[in-house]
Design a protein around this nucleic acid. Sequence first.
DNA 1: AATGAATGAGTGTTCATTCAT
DNA 2: TATGAATGAACACTCATTCAT
Lengths: 240, 240, 240, 240
Amino acid sequence: MGVKGMSSPGQVDSLVTDSKLIEERRGQILRAAVKLFSQQGYYTTTIAQIAREAGVSIGLIYQYFGDKDDILLLSLKLVLETYEHEIPLRLEGVKHPVERLCMAIWAYCAIVDRLREATVLAYRSTNSLRADRRSLIKDEEIRSNRLLEDCLRTCIEGGYMREVNQYLLVYQYVMFCHAWALKNWAFQGKLSPSEYVSEGLKLLVEPFLTAKGKAALSTMRRNTGNFKHDKRPTARAKTK
Amino acid sequence: MGVKGMSSPGQVDSLVTDSKLIEERRGQILRAAVKLFSQQGYYTTTIAQIAREAGVSIGLIYQYFGDKDDILLLSLKLVLETYEHEIPLRLEGVKHPVERLCMAIWAYCAIVDRLREATVLAYRSTNSLRADRRSLIKDEEIRSNRLLEDCLRTCIEGGYMREVNQYLLVYQYVMFCHAWALKNWAFQGKLSPSEYVSEGLKLLVEPFLTAKGKAALSTMRRNTGNFKHDKRPTARAKTK
Amino acid sequence: MGVKGMSSPGQVDSLVTDSKLIEERRGQILRAAVKLFSQQGYYTTTIAQIAREAGVSIGLIYQYFGDKDDILLLSLKLVLETYEHEIPLRLEGVKHPVERLCMAIWAYCAIVDRLREATVLAYRSTNSLRADRRSLIKDEEIRSNRLLEDCLRTCIEGGYMREVNQYLLVYQYVMFCHAWALKNWAFQGKLSPSEYVSEGLKLLVEPFLTAKGKAALSTMRRNTGNFKHDKRPTARAKTK
Amino acid sequence: MGVKGMSSPGQVDSLVTDSKLIEERRGQILRAAVKLFSQQGYYTTTIAQIAREAGVSIGLIYQYFGDKDDILLLSLKLVLETYEHEIPLRLEGVKHPVERLCMAIWAYCAIVDRLREATVLAYRSTNSLRADRRSLIKDEEIRSNRLLEDCLRTCIEGGYMREVNQYLLVYQYVMFCHAWALKNWAFQGKLSPSEYVSEGLKLLVEPFLTAKGKAALSTMRRNTGNFKHDKRPTARAKTK
DNA sequence: AATGAATGAGTGTTCATTCAT
DNA sequence: TATGAATGAACACTCATTCAT
């Protein structure tokens, strides 16, 4: 019985009530879980491993999570919420629509880079969730896509970009960002993260900019010196 | 123990020798495996389920495959080999570089559509393979990417497309095709496969065409009536 | 994988740590294992049977032992260690070299009699161990042989026995003791354990005693009334 | 069904009738079985391995033997029959009772040496037989023991040896011979086979010889030059 | 007579989950 | 709250045995 029967999807309750402790413990356990799930996958990670990594007992885990599936659900939510939280943070103060779009893509890629394994985890393991919970994750993804969607729409509505199939293009943006994690083995050593992004923008943003948009972009570049430089050494991929 | 990189059963004792039968049985079992792995994932599919689905006994599976990992490896290879085989088939007789590129993307998407679940499987389960076998799958993927790469290069070298970061654009094409499977829940009911492709081409091919390339494209369209129509009913996604 | 030479479970995850409990459980399980292995042999004994006999669950066994091979190894060690422990106990306080030798053989036989099935087990199943572990058992056997060797050497060096091929004679003693278990079907009902031993001493000790040794022996007999009597009813085997 | 139900213990019938072929095939399969059982033990040897070693198909084995247990039974019989056949052969023409006894022990050891692994097999695997068949093997062993028993009795009755516990001494002889196989790891490199035997005779025969027996022995030695020399290089074990 | 592909019951082992302390 | 020993259902894999050819 216990937690299982009561928990409605997404509303996973724990047996512990002190809400501060709850958050702390859950975070502690989820960080361990995300790390291990990312490295080894869901099925090959055992509860005992998570307990050890988190520095708690096996039994404790079941006081904060209903079952293993629950841990996965919340692990994936944790990752997706990071996107939703961090992208807006990086957009703060950025006014120009084109700049906002580019910055959003850049920010997305930066987070993907930081959470590379966790991003792969989301692709691998969403289907390991029970069906009802899977859609919760989909909703979460739709929400984070909306961030890019809004930036793109603003650009088009402001006349900075020509009319395109927004819906599809947003997904291209999303796939582009995810690809940095999914196909990292193919890019690693050929492109630095910032090269990846700036080259990507040339393919997925620039071609759709109107004259007005292009003007804005060049002003932007003159002022901001493009993107922050990343440390990683890299061999520039040949354009030709 | 199991035989290292390849597909042979580890159990040396009762190997089946009739090579015609081998192909037949392996195909029979792999088809069942791909289906189940695709639907339920690798770890949640049991050997007993595969056996039942394939209409053979549990023991028989071990006369044609070394272990479960082996079945996964060959399942994934089967899917990837389909790409490598079928794309060239559809390109036969297509001469014009731009047309070849478009056709390659179209063909890739068509196969992804047909093998939608299997394509998702490849994303989910490649990491479930033992490390040494994983790289075999990566090689296979690189080989099928090359098909698109060649089409793209020919377009650029022929002056039909302007110079772009080929390496990145090819991956964008690949992600575009895979996205039809990976994000199908987002496209299903909004775009038919052929709409998906033709809209995609507008985003990922057209912007880079030179005047010469555009001319070719419009000629092509006039002659071929765009792409074959697919049966699936669909609500057209609003571009605006 | 399993830990190499020693006794620890290969499954590192859920190790039991309370050392008192460990001893208790291991003993509990090993007693069951020795009993079943002895009765039915290693391969025909299942883990489930051991669990049932020990009154624990199947899973618990794997928290105290790495694998089935591990259980066998420790079962055999348990038996051999009994020899090493108990023979010296029975020799305590026995001073005269000839008496010590006879007592050692008697004690050895007594233990073999008590652990009859386990002794047979050692013969049957040592070869079922993995090669690296097999030599651990051989070492253990050499150690217990040394007990007899020491007694014999002291007799010879003290002039109680004439010079003989010690090495070979010790093995005759060992085989004699083991034979009580190995060939029990041939002795059962013909000889009681103590008759077996006293008749054996006439064949394997007395003939090599010097005059000095014989004198000692007869004194001994007069004082101690030969060996303790065993309860088992027996039909005296005809010497003639 | 089939062979199983009909075959009474020891009377294992096969489905094939041409008796010459039967003997040939059975021999072929049994030789393979003895080899593999000896090397790897009964349970770890598979029917498929026996088939491959014998150069026949799996199915064929079941036309000559009822089941795996059957193969073991006949394998063990084959080994024991070798004893019964070969010892008398080597005694032919040997007249003197003491010489006959020594020769019998020597012959027994020589066969054990040749069938070392098979002898160990008999110890390990007799208990793997079904109970009813086990006693068949015991009978066989009793029969071969009788050979030594007869030699010993004749010595005693002829006044060449003093009265001893015949029954026990015969078993000591048997154990001595078997020990060459069972404890070979302890003797190998320390004693050659003939040294083993001649040293053994000093411990197990000479002490019981009467003056008449000793005289006979010394005559014998003068004439025959002790035993045949064996090729194996050996480090003589120190008597002292 | 001979084959070897096919079977499936049976085994060792794992691991999510529980619960007494 | 927190622990971790205990459970046992579930799974991958093996191999003696059968039987169509």
